[in-house]
């Protein structure tokens, strides 16, 4: 699918297709297309989780969060959200640097990884504090959905950070390809782009 031949259309006025010697040019790198399909599948999964959460929240009698359950730290998480968004911006700079001068891409890439790691660690610290205040996976539907949705996003963030670390390693070795970097970007931008939606739905 990613390899596109346009022989029939561009073969010339006679319409005779070009011979087999004509190179096949990929329209989209296989890694990027694979990652896009993966992201679509994951987006559907998160859409299902968000839908279920919205329905349970709407069906809740009384206040939300349920009585006796702590409020989520929306203010602190807003700072964390900014860190994640900045991480996405840093990756964009890494991509631009890689196109012009690959050696200069390492620094913004490392900044992106560090900001992403900060986000994950901050989330971990937040979970510890919330468990201490009585919000657990079994304490209420609020807790169940919070840990399920935010936890799933956290898992994706960790996996994407692993991929970015691999990309940084390949870059340092001088063996990084544009295709791999693009695939990593697709995954990280999904993680970054999804988070504000989850933040608004779950925290606010």
């Amino acid at each position: 699918m990613t390899t596109h031949t346009i022989r029939a259309r561009t073969a010339g006025p006679s319409g005779v297709p070009a011979g087999p010697s004509q190179p096949r040019t990929p329209i989209v790198p296989n890694g990027v297309l694979g990652m896009l399909i993966f992201v679509i599948v994951e987006a559907m999964m998160f859409a299902g989780l968000i839908s279920a959460f919205v329905i349970v929240q709407a069906a809740a009698v009384g206040s939300w969060p349920p009585p006796g359950q702590p409020r989520l730290p929306a203010g602190e998480t807003a700072i964390n959200t900014v860190a994640l968004l900045l991480s996405g911006v840093a990756l964009l700079f890494a991509q631009r640097s890689f196109r012009s001068e690959p050696a200069r891409a390492l620094r913004p890439l490392l900044v992106s990884i560090l900001l992403g790691a900060f986000f994950v660690l901050f989330q971990g610290a937040e979970w510890v504090a919330l468990i201490g205040r009585g919000l657990t996976l079994t304490s209420s539907t609020h807790g169940s959905f919070f840990y399920l949705i935010v936890g799933m996003h956290g898992l994706h963030a960790v996996a994407a950070l692993g991929l970015l670390a691999f990309i940084a390693w390949r870059l340092q070795q001088g063996r990084l390809t544009q295709d791999l970097l693009s695939a990593g970007q697709v995954f990280w931008y999904f993680v970054v782009g999804l988070w504000p939606i989850l933040y608004i739905q779950v925290y606010l």
Binding site: S51, V54, I55, Q57, A58, A59
Partner: peptide
């Protein structure tokens, strides 16, 4: 609210 949530989702 519940009915709206069902329709919207």
């Amino acid at each position: 609210e519940n009915r709206v949530a069902f329709i919207a989702t």
